[in-house]
Design a protein around this nucleic acid. Structure first.
Lengths: 332, 332
DNA sequence: TTGTAGGCGTTATCAG
DNA sequence: CTGATAACGCCTACAA
C-alpha cells in the first residue's frame, strides 16, 4: 500500500484495474459474481491505492447504512457496559458499526437521542428497557427498522426483546431467602424502573409468605458501592434485629457488606445480603456475595443475533428470555 | 406530528411550506439566513410531516459526516468507560454521534477497526493510548482528519493527545510510599503498555532511592479484583516481610486488600496497598484505598473539546495534560 | 432573503 | 460475467 491521498475513490481503482466502477463494487460486496482473474486485478489495485470505500456514499445509494444504534442510560456501570461490549463485537464481525447513545436516567433523555440517531438511517436499533415514551414508540414504529429492547421482558415489546422478567427476579430472591429462614427483609435500590420491578417482586412474594419488608431505601441511579454503605448506615438507625437486604445491584450489595463489616455486624448472621447482577466484585468479596446472576454479555450477543437475523431476512423469535439464576455464596 | 411514513424528505417539506428545498436546509443548518416568517412556515411543515433529515445524504453532500469514531480496548472496565461516557455526551451536545470501536488488548486488533471505521468518513477520531502500529499511523495520517489520543502522554503524538505520563505516576507513587517509610515493594499489574510504564516508573524511582522491588506479578488485561486477590495469594508464598504493593488498577488494589484481610494480614501494617484510577470502589472499601486519582471523565471531555475546536477551525493545544494526584487514604 | 444547478461516491437495475 | 445509466437525499456555489 502506497501513501495514497485521502481521496481515492472507486473510479480510481476501476481505472487502474481497467474495469468499470461497478465491477470494483462487486468485488467488494458480491465477490461470487466476478471472474477470479478480474477480481485479482481489482484487489491488486485496491491494495496499491489503499482504497477505503466511502460507506456514506454506499449507504446513501444502497439504503443500507450498516449502522446500528445502541441507546442505554449509561455505560459507566457494568450492567450495560458488558452488553454493549458484546453487542458491538458481534455486530462488528458482521460488518456493522454501532453508534452509541447515552440517554441518562432523566425522563425524556431518550426522545431527542432517538430522533437524532434515526437521522443516521440505522439499519437497526437497540434500546435498554421496554418503557419508552409514546413519542419514542411512534418514532420507532414509523422508522420501520428492527428494534431490540434489552434487559427487560414484557408481553408487548416494540418489536423484539431480549431479557428477563424483573419481578420474577425479586420473587426468586424472596424464595431463596425465605428458604434460608429469613422473615424480615429490607431493600436498597436505585431509582430506576427495572430495579423497582425487582423490589416489588420481592415485596409481593415476601408478604404472600407472611414475612415483612421493614425498610426500603431508594437512591439515585446509577447504583453505587457508596450508596450501599450509606443505605446500610441509615437503616441501622431503625433496624435492631437481623434482616436480609435485597440490593438492586452487586455494587450496592458490596457496599452493604463493607458497611456491615465496618460496624462489626456479622454477615450473614446479623445482616444477610443478596445482590443482583453477579458483577466481578461479588465473587471476589470476603465473604463472597450471594446474588442473582444475569449474563449481560449474552444479552448483548442475543440482541445482535436478533437484529442480524432480521436484517438477513430470517424470521427470528420476538422474545428471547435470558435466564437468571441465584448464585449462593457466603453473604446470604 | 402525524404518523408519517418513513420516507419524508426535504422536498416534501419544501412543497408543503411553499419554499425551495434549499430554504428548508437553511432553516435547519443556518437559521440566521432565513426570514422569520419563512422559517416559521418551514418549521410547521417539518413538525407536521415528522421530517427527520437524512444525515447520510447530508454527510455525503457536505463532506462532513458529523460522526466521530472512538476506539478503545474495552468499555467493560471503568477506565475507558468513564472517558467514553463523557466524550459521547460532550460531542452529542455539539451534534456529533460517536461510533464505538472496541479493539481488545490483542495486538493488531486496532488496525482492521481503524480501517473499517475510516470508511465511515468520521470527522475526527479518538484512540486509546499513543502506541499504534505503523499501519494505523499511516492510515490516520492519510485520512487527514483530526486525531486525539487519550490516557497517555508522549512528545510526538499522532496529532493531539490528552492524558498524562504513566512513568511519572509510578515515580510519584514511589515517592509517596517512600515518604511513608516503605523500602520493600511489589507490583501487581495488567499486561498492558500503560500499566507497564507505571510499573517501570515506580521501579526506577524505588531503585534510585535504594529500595527494592521484590516481586512483580503480571496478569492478562483487563485488570480485575480477583486478579488482585490471586496475585497477593501467590506473592505471600514468597514474601515474609511487610511490603508496599503498587497495583495497576484500583480493582487490583481492592482485590489485594480483600485477600490480605482474608489472610489476617493488617492493611497497611503488613501489606500496604496503593491503587490507580480512583474508581468508586477505593473510597468505599474499608480501609479506603490510597490511590493515584485520574479524572477519566475529564479526559473524555477534554478530548471532545480538542476535536470540536479543531473542527471549528480553531487551533487548540496539541498536548493537554490532565493531572493525576495521590489520594491518601487508609491502605498505604 | 431565496432559488437553481450540479455533484458528493456509491450501488440498483437493466442491458449486453 | 461485465458495463452504462440513473438515482440515493442533501448541500455547496452561485445567481437573482
Amino acid at each position: 500500500m502506497s501513501t495514497a491521498r485521502s481521496t481515492v475513490k472507486i473510479t480510481d481503482v476501476a481505472a487502474l484495474a481497467g474495469v468499470a466502477p461497478m465491477t470494483v463494487s462487486r468485488v467488494l460486496n458480491n465477490p461470487g459474481q466476478v471472474a477470479t482473474a478480474t477480481a485479482l486485478r481489482v484487489r491488486a489495485a485496491i491494495e496499491q491505492l489503499g482504497y477505503v470505500p466511502n460507506l456514506i456514499a454506499g449507504g446513501l445509494s444502497s439504503r443500507r447504512s450498516r449502522i446500528v444504534a445502541a441507546i442505554v442510560p449509561t455505560i459507566a456501570t457494568p450492567v450495560f457496559a458488558t452488553s454493549i461490549q458484546a453487542f458491538t463485537d458481534a455486530l462488528g464481525h458482521a460488518g456493522y458499526h454501532v453508534v452509541l447513545g447515552l440517554s441518562g436516567y432523566a425522563p425524556g433523555g431518550e426522545d431527542a437521542l432517538v430522533a437524532a440517531v434515526l437521522g443516521r438511517q440505522p439499519d437497526g436499533i437497540m434500546l435498554a428497557g421496554a418503557q419508552h415514551s409514546p413519542a419514542v414508540r411512534l418514532r420507532l414504529a414509523t422508522s420501520g427498522i428492527p428494534v431490540v429492547e434489552i434487559w427487560d421482558m414484557v408481553d408487548d415489546p416494540a418489536d423484539m426483546i431480549v431479557g428477563f422478567d424483573h419481578a420474577s427476579v425479586g420473587a426468586a430472591a424472596a424464595g431463596y431467602l425465605r428458604a434460608k429462614g429469613h422473615r424480615r427483609f429490607a431493600t436498597i435500590g436505585a431509582d430506576d424502573p427495572r430495579a423497582a420491578a425487582r423490589r416489588h417482586g420481592l415485596a409481593d412474594a415476601v408478604r404472600a409468605g407472611g414475612g415483612a419488608v421493614l425498610f426500603d431505601t431508594i437512591m439515585p441511579a446509577p447504583a453505587s458501592i457508596q450508596g450501599g454503605r450509606d443505605a446500610v448506615a441509615a437503616a441501622m438507625r431503625h433496624l435492631h434485629q437481623p434482616v436480609a437486604v435485597f440490593c438492586s445491584s452487586d455494587l450496592v450489595a458490596a457496599g452493604a457488606v463493607i458497611e456491615a463489616q465496618a460496624r462489626g455486624l456479622a454477615v450473614p448472621g446479623q445482616l444477610a445480603v443478596c445482590g443482583f447482577g453477579d458483577f466481578e466484585i461479588s465473587a471476589a468479596m470476603n465473604p463472597p456475595i450471594t446474588t442473582v446472576a444475569v449474563d449481560g454479555a449474552e444479552i448483548g450477543r442475543a440482541a445482535a443475533d436478533c437484529l442480524l437475523k432480521r436484517l438477513g431476512g430470517v424470521a427470528g423469535p420476538r422474545r428471547v428470555i435470558v435466564p437468571f439464576r441465584i448464585v449462593e455464596r457466603g453473604s446470604a
